[in-house]
Amino acid sequence: MDLAVDTNTIIYILAIAWATIFSFLAIKTKDVLYSAVFLVGMYVSAAWALIQIDAWFLALIYLFVNAGGVLVLIIFAAMLTRPTIDIPPTRRISLAALINSSLVVLLIAILLLISRAQLTTSFTSNFSAIIQFLFSNYGISLLILSVAVLSIYLGAIYVASEEK
């Protein structure tokens, strides 16, 4: 396996490192509102990493949907529910969770590392190609997506509404 490191790679890893630090802080802080703030940092650095590998379309949508939509929802929900302070998990639970999640990630890492595939990033976002995919045969995905959005509208409004 050839692990040649160029400037692009270093910047990418830097961005991912920032995202990891922010996400660690978002998990570790006591107050959920603060962790929402750290989530912004995570979103921005992850989008930076996506732009670094030339997937700017994905980066854009990612920022719009998450930093624009989901984050606002999270902050609202965190302010509506009291208390916002999270009690840290007990040692036993956190150890079990750590072992489980590490097993998943280790499996992924090992199988990725021992593969003989040569993957080099070489592609830039191409708007017309994306549109071509989305509006040809895969247009059927918009049908099923509309059902999903409909069920979320019905469901979320129903769940969050007051019981009479």
């Binding site: 991912i16 990891t20 992850a46 590490s102 990630v105 890492a109």
Partner: peptide, 27 residues
């Protein structure tokens, strides 16, 4: 750039996320 580096580099992020789902108490 070698994509394998990119794939490995995001794994800590995935680890933190899955750990948080399993261990945290605040919904």
């Amino acid at each position: 750039m070698n994509a394998l580096i990119a794939l490995i580099a995001v794994l800590p992020l995935f680890l933190i996320g899955v750990y948080g789902i399993l261990a945290r108490r605040h919904f």
